[in-house]
Design a protein around this nucleic acid. Structure first.
Length: 315
DNA sequence: ACCCAGGCATTGG
DNA sequence: CCAATGCATGGG
């Protein structure tokens, strides 16, 4: 077991606790990610070998700096660099929040939200596959139910590594960490077995199908989708069974970091827009879409900040 | 016991 | 092309 260190300089403003916390749904632990005592941890799957990254802030919101400790084997300089890139991507460190904040200033409700959550960047998933599977697992069910199901899938089929929990120290207190399941692992898993993950037949079929697509080589990897326009990405991923416009829009936000996606159909989005802007009167998707026109081309940011307000009890 | 929750595909008009 | 329906699970 080798150890290596590196540092990352996010684009300011960057609030580490908020951003890592959003990634874990403001729970100490959510699926593959944990935020504990100011340390964000994630088991990276670097070309098939497992590296535990422990990240903490050594700067401030306006002068951010992250210290990363890596543990694993084969930590060559190239792989350390790759790990740093992945951590940076997971935490969205390169995003420039300024244009969105400028727009938010014109809206009192949003100005309050961006004031409260100043420095929140939009976290990303490690892969397109991860965003798709998490999306499917989250369809139409309550977030806490989704959390149970996602965690079960990850801890059953995800690559597992045992690591000392102490940051930058040694102890005999080892703890298991999980990376997101690889496509091959889920593709090899019969639908009947996936149903044991508290999935409906339908969702088990969706997950199996998406896994088979990615295990067999696909034209939907991030490198491929990256060069396409939003619409073209949506057209392509909605070809997959189980992936509709809601999942596709969340994929644009979470897996590709697109700034202007809008997950219409999302009940929570309707609820938060209703509460913040329509005095709690119910709104439908058409009203949400119309209302969000002025937020373009920053609708992903508006969406994530509204969700944060909702999750943190501001709406 | 019910009803709803950060949808989707399928089916029937 | 729009509306209705089944689906799994856990919490209110």
């Amino acid at each position: 077991m080798e150890k290596a260190h590196c540092s990352i300089t996010p684009k300011a403003p960057f609030d580490f606790d908020l951003t890592a916390g959003y990634h874990t749904y403001f729970q100490g632990h959510y699926g593959t990610d944990s935020l504990d005592q100011g340390v964000y941890r994630r088991l990276l799957d670097l070309n098939g070998s497992l590296v535990l990254a422990s990240v903490r802030s050594v700067g401030s919101v306006d002068s951010p700096e992250l210290s990363v400790e890596l543990r694993g084997s084969g930590l060559t300089p190239e792989r350390v660099d790759l790990a740093a890139k992945q951590i940076g991507w997971l935490l969205g460190v390169d995003q420039d929040l300024a244009p969105f904040y400028d727009l938010a200033r014109q809206d009192p409700a949003m100005a309050a939200v961006t004031g409260q959550f100043h420095g929140l960047h939009l976290p990303h998933t490690a892969t397109v596959f991860e965003a798709l599977v998490l999306g499917i697992l989250g369809q139409q069910i309550a977030t806490n139910v989704a959390r149970i199901i996602r965690t079960l899938l990850i801890e059953t089929y995800g690559p597992r590594g045992l690591f000392d929990k102490i940051f930058d120290g040694e102890s005999n207190d080892e703890e298991p960490f999980f990376a997101f399941p690889r496509p091959e692992a889920l593709a090899a898993c019969p639908v009947a077995e996936l149903r044991g993950m508290k999935l409906s037949w339908r969702k088990a079929e969706y997950v199996q199908g998406v896994a088979a697509e990615f295990a067999g080589g696909t034209d939907m990897e991030r490198a491929t989708l990256e060069v396409l326009g939003d619409e073209e990405v949506v057209n392509r991923v909605t070809q997959l069974r189980g992936v509709g416009r809601w999942t596709a829009q969340w994929l644009l936000i979470r897996a590709l970091g697109r700034p202007d996606a809008l997950p219409l159909g999302d009940l929570a989005l309707r609820r938060v827009v209703s509460r913040l802007y329509f005095s709690g009167e119910p709104v439908d998707d058409a009203q949400v879409e119309e209302f969000c026109i002025p937020w373009s081309p920053w609708r992903s940011y508006a969406t994530v900040y509204w969700f944060t307000a909702l999750r943190r009890g501001m709406a």
